[in-house]
């Protein structure tokens, strides 16, 4: 039986992601852990997150999990979700500038103020709800997920990688932004697959069967 470790670093509830992983692949053992050894021994690792980046990085640095995640990023399939995606970049503009894990080269920025759609209506921040995910190139995690499927988003910041080649998908709000990153054995999404019904479960299932190669 393969094992997936969901990293628990005290930031919010992990109930949904654990249940969704169990649902997506009942044959996989899902563990929710903060212990470095257990994370390093798992076959795959999910790095979730909600809330503010400063609290997130503080928790990761104090617990030593920052280094554990860097090790995982070099050795096995890693899935970053939402704040867990943003934390992979070099730094974030949130909380007056916060250094992050620097696993993927680039920055996290806020949506510009006073965005409007083509009809002149104010676009609300946070970007909240179901938006289309446009896959830029084939990847094992997109298997059986139709192009431009809608996933559930809730965020005010987004990743801007320095190397455009790591962008795995974009979403428009109103301009295209990076909503998924793929770099070797690391995959990360701004949206919430655990809250995106059938397509979300499919993405989790794909991750749970991914060997980390593209």
């Amino acid at each position: 039986m393969s094992t997936v470790a969901v990293i628990d670093y005290g930031m919010g509830n992990l109930h949904s992601i654990v249940k969704a992983l169990q649902h997506a692949a009942p044959e996989v053992d899902v563990i929710c852990v903060s212990d470095a050894e257990a994370i390093l021994q798992a076959d795959r690792v999910v790095f979730p997150g909600v809330g503010a980046i400063r609290d997130c990085m503080q928790a990761l640095n104090q617990s030593g999990l920052a280094d554990v995640i860097r090790q995982v990023a070099e050795s096995k399939p890693l899935l970053g979700i939402c704040l867990g995606m943003q934390a992979l970049l070099t730094d974030s503009a949130e909380n007056n500038g916060t250094p992050c894990l620097a696993i993927i080269d680039g920055h996290v920025v806020h949506f510009p103020e006073a965005l409007t759609d083509i009809d002149g209506n104010l676009l609300k921040i946070p970007h909240m709800g179901w938006n289309q995910v446009h896959q830029l190139h084939p990847h094992p995690l997109w298997e059986n997920i139709p192009q431009d499927s809608r996933f559930y988003f809730v965020h005010s910041y987004y990743a801007q990688p320095n190397d455009a080649a790591v962008t795995a998908a974009t979403t428009q709000y109103p301009d295209a932004f990076t909503c998924a990153l793929a770099q070797a054995n690391v995959f990360a999404v701004q949206f919430h697959p655990e809250k995106s019904q059938a397509v979300g479960l499919q993405l989790l299932k794909n991750f749970l069967h991914w060997d980390g190669h593209v």
């Binding site: 759609d117 676009l123 970007h127 709800g129 179901w130 938006n131 289309q132 446009h134 431009d148 809608r150 988003f153 428009q172 709000y173 109103p174």
Partner: peptide
């Protein structure tokens, strides 16, 4: 292509 309006 844009954000869908939600029904809750």
């Amino acid at each position: 292509m844009s954000l869908a309006k939600r029904i809750i």
